[in-house]
Simulated assay, not measured.
Amino acid sequence: MPEVPAPVVALVRRTTEPVVAQTIRSTTAAVLSYVIATLLLPQPAPLTAPLTALLVVQVTLYATLKTGIRRVNAVLAGVLIATGFSALVGLTWWTLGLTILTALVIGRLVRVGEFVPEVAISAMLVLGVAQVTATALDRVFETLIGAVVGLVFNSLAPPVWVQSAGDAITGMARGMGRLYRDMAEEVTGHVPVAEAAKRLHAARRLDDDISGVDAELRQAEDSTRLNPRVKEGLLSRVALRTGLDTLEICAVVQRVQFRSLTDLAKARPDEPMLPDDAAQAYAQLLRHTAEAVESFATLITTSAASGADAAEDSLEAALTASRADRDRLANRLLDLVREQPRQWQLHGALLAEADRVLDELDVEKRSARLIEELDRLTARTHEQRPRLRAVLDRLQARRS
């Protein structure tokens, strides 16, 4: 069998990525909806159909269903408004303004979400033609064709964005680990205030990463809803969400840690922040904390049982080493406080902040938080759907 060229392999891999697959799906749905609308409707250029298909084919099946319904409602509301105004008045500047105002107000009332402007756009397009009734019906049919085609396309192998969300979470954890390791290299010597402040600013910039990761995770959560390709979608959503919450807390504590180190550098401008033995212990603590953060990210983004077990073992080992480093550091700092009590608040802060990070990453605490969140979501679902809960209880009673 001849060897496949490397560029061809790279191209095939690119076409399997969610972004590329979504682009191909959107383009194909728009073209197909245009062809169908051309065959079924008398309009020479039914561009509303491909426009609707392009907007309806969202990144997830769940979003497609919501968007399709809202968009059809928006178009219908705009068509009805234009039909009513055309029967009463002609097209003038004041009737156009009144139509737009009415469409925007009604768009808020019918709750079409982000498609409020679509109500006014539909009303203007229909109001500006002579044969309002025929144009209104054609526009409704075009919208329905585009919405149906978009829904069908996203129902065929709907994309799952869990992997991209996991990559974003892993990237964020690696950024945190890199900051810990960089500080571990510097803390063993004299750290100028400017260098310590630079690390503090880098830790603050993690807020931007958190916002981006949160957006990726929301998209992943939507992609697992109503998706036949996903098994245990609720568990996957809860595992990623609770894991990101933990990493977000750790990022905040890391920023506070670097604030304490910057203050310590200001208090000791002409000498090392810590004596050599305490600095060595703290550097080891930072390195093992970096390993723990990265192992935690691997754990919450790994679905296979074997991989999850390995990640959990790695996390446990890193936490055990970190706690040993923390105890050794506490003994060094206790001796230091007795000799030089003037920075005892900052030394105590370093220990308290390290304890907070290690406590958040604890495996048992994560398991308890995961179970608690699953129970909460299940109870909320039962409260929102009492009839479904009653049917399930009856079925369970009959099986018993």
Rank of each mutant, 00 (worst) to 15 (best):
D362V: 07
G348A: 07
L315C: 07
V391F: 14
V152I: 13
L65K: 04
L333C: 03
R342N: 12
R399H: 07
P46Y: 01
R328N: 08
R225W: 09
A278R: 02
D335S: 15
S236Y: 01
D375T: 05
F296T: 05
R323E: 13
N331V: 15
G84C: 14
I106R: 00
T301M: 10
L329C: 03
L96M: 04
I249L: 14
G78Q: 05
R14T: 08
E383Q: 13
T301K: 02
L156K: 06
L370M: 06
P42G: 14
V59N: 00
L40D: 09
G150R: 02
L370F: 08
E118H: 14
V110H: 09
T67K: 08
L329F: 11
A292C: 01
L151H: 01
L96K: 00
L392R: 09
T28A: 15
A239W: 03
L235K: 12
L61M: 06
E221I: 11
R255D: 09
A45E: 15
A324Y: 14
I169V: 02
L151K: 01
S86D: 11
S322G: 14
K231T: 05
T242M: 01
R342K: 12
Q43A: 07
F141E: 15
W161M: 07
G90C: 14
V148T: 11
E373S: 13
A120Q: 13
P275H: 10
L395W: 11
V9A: 08
L88I: 10
T67R: 06
E353Q: 15
N73W: 12
D355K: 10
A305N: 11
L299M: 07
A251M: 12
E216A: 09
T28K: 05
C250L: 09
D276F: 05
V20Q: 02
I371G: 10
P2I: 13
V79E: 01
L361Q: 10
G128C: 12
V253I: 07
L334T: 14
V293D: 05
A308T: 07
Q131T: 13
S122K: 10
E373N: 10
E271G: 05
S314D: 14
Q22K: 01
L234V: 08
L206W: 01
A321T: 05
P269L: 04
V160Q: 03
A290M: 02
E195P: 06
L51W: 07
